[in-house]
Each structure stands twice: as structure tokens, then as C-alpha cells.
Design a protein around this nucleic acid. Structure first.
Lengths: 352, 352
DNA sequence: TTGAAAGCGCTAACAC
DNA sequence: GTGTTAGCGCTTTCAA
């Protein structure tokens, strides 16, 4: 193993000089710099991560906590994770992959051991166990008063919005606006009865923020525009979708607009509508909230609001890095939704 | 930050004693152990990862290199990654997430810096840049002779099989046997003309091992059983599938059996067959190589060979940990495929 | 069964 | 612009 001392010797300079060449924290003559860099190349030197972390109290590692469950949005999660990893690298950080399994303990462990300098949490629930640990020091105490050791003092960014964002930095698609946008689009086309096909019931039961906030947006915009709205959670697959669709059409036969927020329900819905002789978009319109790829590859090219996975991952890292650099405050970043009109939505048919 | 020294003082013992209580590397009296453990609890002590890594030359981190591209099997990748992370934790390791982007440099960087103790590589290609760095010392030298610094001396396990596995440990589904199994199943049902719908052309172009090995298995079994086989790569989505299917039926109108190895082609295929009035499984049979969930949630429950993502992730970690513990040799672990018969395959229709 | 102490390789004062 | 040096917190001999 090549050490900094060996590089120093080889280049005929002191250890600190090598260190400073590496960090750029003080000016080095062109000559010296070149000799050192040459020695580094020649010897194939790589700074030891542990030693560096110990001496500098910085690991240059960001922890990313991904949900253990894979009952939804797996490709989105993956895309976010990859965006986080690549963005982190451009800032000189590596990414540690944690699963939600360990829960709050993982936060304590990673923060306590100095394994990571900061963390990014995905799949945040409205009331999340891990949040009390992560709130900034200026956040109001939890009811019950100060509990020592409750703070991990770990810079963090959430992907997703909890109920209470005080003292936290969050990045997310503005799902409330997304819901409103979908209803608005359909309403403008004349649809008066809209059905929302949502995530699996479990997603709502555990109070996943994005699902509930989308629903909020859908409902309030529907109220605003005088449109009737029916929401039904729906598991993935054909059988679940068949049941759900039947119920919806039974309860609201005049439904002409659908909003789908569930990747694995998209194709079943289209197939079932086709099977029932309802043409898209002539008879019914469908708007999806899903990754771009799903919208484009579906059997009918879907009018959709894309989930900007890459952007979320990138923003999360950039805000975290800003915090680690002492810049950066606690903010909530809501990415504005964009609705792309494709082939699945059109004017509502004339009323019977 | 609580240090080991503080714990020692609090417990009235020496630093080394605390260290040994933690590592279990020498016997400690029950009394002492208890006092130390109590102090650890009380002070909320977590050993510093950097210091530990520096002193022990072990980071207790496993690096996982995932493919940057997300043109295939994303849910499988994610499932493997999660299985790796959870299994690693049970062995006391954390997981560092690397993307394929950096290529061989990432291997050098991670190995050289001691950031990780070992690595797991996914999406290995038949001829992979990163492999020369990872081969064991007993492996034959690359043609061209010994090149110093070519070895990273990094214990590694591959998920997937390269062309040359000498000096490497690999874990994978036996895709050759998988291909044979699929053809065998269809042949036994009387199908004599089988079409294979494969991954996107790009996957074959970059010589991804599993795709080519599946094809091998399909072809040799077809030859063996006297069955005609036509292979066509196919991108995801309806449009690509429509073109591919039309070509296949044009070239081989008697095709009654399909093998699909492409998640995003499964549903389009079923929809198109339906649309053309070909009933599954009465007129044509379909066998898929895909994750269990896809097979079960498809519009027709698919006869399939499941991709054992969890198992692959788990085995990879276990073999790597064995290597790190000084146990464990270089082996190729091929997981035997299992074909589950569902509703998409049946006897070939009587010949016209 | 326990303690004392010498590093592990690097960073960042502090000197010049 | 460069060198000297004191730690960072832990592991692990060596000694008792």
C-alpha cells in the first residue's frame, strides 16, 4: 500500500506538501506541484479513506436510505438512487446504501460512527420515526420537552414531504399541484366525472406523503371546478384493476376521465377499457402520474405528469452538499409538475 | 462525540478493555463486561468508523457496482441491491453504492483507498474492463504478460458470468439451463416452431452474458429436440413489439410457442396476440423469463422461469464475506432455474 | 483477566 | 512557499 509519506519521499518534499497539493488548501509552486503529481501517478497513490476521515472528521460519504418495500415506483427509486450516486461523485462524495429496515437505529448508527457526513432519506412518511432525530437544532422541541440524545445532528435532506417540515430540508415533486393539474386538464376538456385510481391501499395506510398530497390537490381542484371526483386505491395487476374498475363504473357510470397514480395499474386499465369497448381518448380520457418511460411505452401514449426522478436525486444531493459546506438552509423545494399532452386525453364525449 | 477513551474512563477500565469488549477478541470477566456495556449505553457510544478502519485496515464496507443504464431489469437490479444491503448488514457490513459510470477507475479508487473491503459487480459483460483488475493472483496472466499495478487485489464477487471466469467468483442464474428449460417445456407440449423475443438489441451488442447464454441454451436444446427456433431482439413498448411480432409471424407463420426474455415486452406481446385473435394458451403458448411478480400480474398468468434476485444478492454477499474471512475460494455458483407452469402455456394446437 | 503504549495514514495548526 | 509535528480514535502487540 502506498502512503502519503512515500509519495513525499519520492517527490522530495514533506508530507504536508503532498497533502496540500491534494487538497488545494494552500498555494504550491508549479514546480513542486508537478513533481508531487508525478510521484502520485508513478506510485499509484490513493489516499487512505479511513485515515483521511479520522484526521479530518469528514468521511466524504453520503448515506442514502431507500425503502425496503418494493411495492411501488421501483424504477423511480432506482433512478433517484442512481442520480444521487452520480451527482454525489461530481461533488467528491460516495454513497452508502441503507435500507429502511433498520429504521431510526440506522440514523443513529451512521451519524454516531461518523460513517457518513450527511444523509438522504427516501420514501418519507407523513409521521416518520426518523425525523425527530434529524430536525435542525432551531426546530421546536417535540411535545414532551427536550430529550437529550434525540438529535443525531446529522445534516439531512428528505425526498418526500412529511407532515411537519420544520427544521428539515425536503425535495419533492409538488404532488398537490400535480393533482390539481390533472383535474384541471380533464375539466378543461369537459370531463365532469373523474375517477382516480391510486396506489395500493397499503400506501395510503402508511400515510405516504405523496399519495395523500396528490389526493388533496385532486380534490380541492375538483371542488373548485365543480367536478365530481371518486378515488379508489388499487393494487397492481389485472385482477385488482378489474375489480376496481367495475366498482367505479358501477358507482359512477358517467365517468369519462381517469387519473392513474400507479404504474402497475396503467396497462391493466387500458386493456380493460379496450376490452369493454371504451375507446381512449374518444370515450374516456386517461391522465397518468408516472415516469416518462411508462407514459411513452404504454399501449396508448399517455397524457401524463412525469415524476422527475433524476432531478429529485440531483437536488437532494446539491442541497445536502450545500449544508455540509456550511451554506444551505432548511428549505422545502417543490418541483413544479409539468403535464405533457399525449394521445390518451381528449374532449369529453357529448352527454348521453 | 463520545470516544472509546471516555467510555473507558466512565467504566473505570482501560481503553483496550473496552475495545476487547466490543470485538470479543479476548475473554472479559462478566463483571467488567457489564460495566463497560452499561457505560456504552449510558454515554451513547458509537465507535468511530474512520479510526476503526485506519487501525484495523478493514472498513467493514462492501462496494456494490450497479449498472448506470436502466434499459433492462430495473426491478431485478433494485431487488438484488436491497438483498445485498440487508444481507451485508447481517454480517456487519455496510454497502457503498457505485455506478458503472466510473468503470475500472472506480475499482482502483475504492480498492486503493481502502474505502471498501471487497466488491460486488452487477451487469457484468462477457469481456469486461473491470475484470483484469479483479482476477485472483493465481489466475493466468493476460496475454501480453504481467503488468504491474494491474491487479486491484480486491476481493470481489460478480453477479453474472463473463466469458472467462478464471480467478473469479461469480453468482448467477444458470441462464443456459433456463433457455433449455423453456424450450423443453414448449417442445414437450408439442410446439415445433418457437420464437424467442429477447432483450433490446443494445443488450446483445454489448455482449451481456445472461442474454447470450440464454440464447445458447435455447438454441442447443432446440437443436437437440429438433425444434425450429427464431430469435429476435426487441426493445420495450408496444410499437417495437408490434413490428417484431409482425416480422416473426411473417417469417414463421407456424409459430405456436413464444419465449420472452424482456419484462417490458411481455404485456405488449399479450395484448397484440389478443388483438390478432390468437388465444393464449389455446392457439399460442408463452413462456417468460422474468421476475415472479411480472409473471403473476400479467394479463395472463405466465408460465415462467423466475429470476431469483434475492438469492443472487444474498449468495454474492455470503461468498464475498467468506473471502474476506479467509475462507472461500473462487467458484462459479449457478442457481438452477425453476419453471413454474401457469396459464400461458398448453398443448400445441393441431397442425393446419 | 487486564493495562500501557505504539502505531495506523492523514490533516492542519504552527513555525519559518 | 514549505517543513515540522501533534493529534484524530481505534486496534493490537507486549507486559503483567
Amino acid at each position: 500500500m502506498v502512503t502519503l509519506a512515500e509519495v513525499a519521499q519520492h517527490a522530495g518534499v514533506s508530507a504536508s506538501t503532498v497533502s496540500y497539493v491534494l487538497s488545494g488548501k494552500r498555494s504550491i509552486s508549479a514546480n513542486t506541484r508537478q513533481r508531487v503529481e508525478e510521484s502520485i501517478q508513478r506510485l499509484g497513490y490513493h489516499p487512505n479513506a479511513g485515515a483521511r476521515a479520522l484526521a479530518s472528521s469528514r468521511s466524504n460519504i453520503i448515506a442514502l436510505m431507500v425503502p425496503l418495500r418494493t411495492d411501488m415506483y421501483v424504477p423511480v427509486m432506482m433512478e433517484i438512487a442512481i442520480a444521487v450516486a452520480t451527482t454525489a461523485r461530481t461533488h467528491g462524495y460516495d454513497v452508502l446504501l441503507l435500507t429502511g429496515e433498520e429504521g431510526p437505529d440506522a440514523v443513529r448508527r451512521v451519524a454516531g460512527s461518523g460513517l457518513a457526513d450527511g444523509m438522504i432519506l427516501m420514501d418519507v412518511e407523513l409521521e416518520d420515526d426518523r425525523l425527530p432525530l434529524l430536525r435542525g437544532v432551531d426546530a421546536p422541541e417535540a411535545p414532551g420537552g427536550a430529550r437529550p440524545g434525540l438529535r443525531a445532528d446529522q445534516p439531512a435532506v428528505l425526498i418526500g414531504l412529511p407532515a411537519d417540515t420544520s427544521g428539515l430540508t425536503c425535495v419533492d415533486l409538488d404532488f398537490r399541484a400535480t393533482g390539481a393539474l390533472c383535474v384541471g386538464h380533464l375539466a378543461k376538456l369537459g370531463h365532469r366525472d373523474i375517477a382516480v385510481i391510486g396506489e395500493a391501499p397499503a400506501v395510503y395506510e402508511r400515510h405516504t406523503g405523496f399519495a395523500e398530497r396528490t389526493l388533496d390537490g385532486l380534490r380541492s381542484e375538483a371542488r373548485e371546478l365543480g367536478v365530481r371526483l371518486l378515488h379508489r386505491p388499487c393494487g397492481g395487476g389485472y385482477d385488482a384493476m378489474a375489480v376496481t374498475l367495475a366498482r367505479i363504473l358501477d358507482e359512477r357510470p358517467d365517468t369519462t376521465g381517469f387519473v392513474v397514480q400507479n404504474e402497475s395499474a396503467v396497462e391493466p386499465l387500458l386493456a380493460l377499457l379496450r376490452q369493454q369497448g371504451r375507446a381512449v381518448p374518444e370515450d374516456v380520457s386517461v391522465v397518468a402520474v408516472c415516469p416518462e418511460q411508462v407514459a411513452v411505452q404504454a399501449s396508448v401514449r399517455l397524457t401524463s405528469v412525469a415524476i422527475p426522478a433524476q432531478e429529485m436525486g440531483r437536488y437532494a444531493v446539491e442541497h445536502l452538499v450545500a449544508k455540509l459546506d456550511g451554506r444551505g438552509e432548511d428549505v422545502v423545494v417543490l418541483i413544479a409538475p409539468e403535464l405533457t399532452v399525449r394521445a390518451s386525453s381528449g374532449p369529453a364525449p357529448a352527454r348521453a
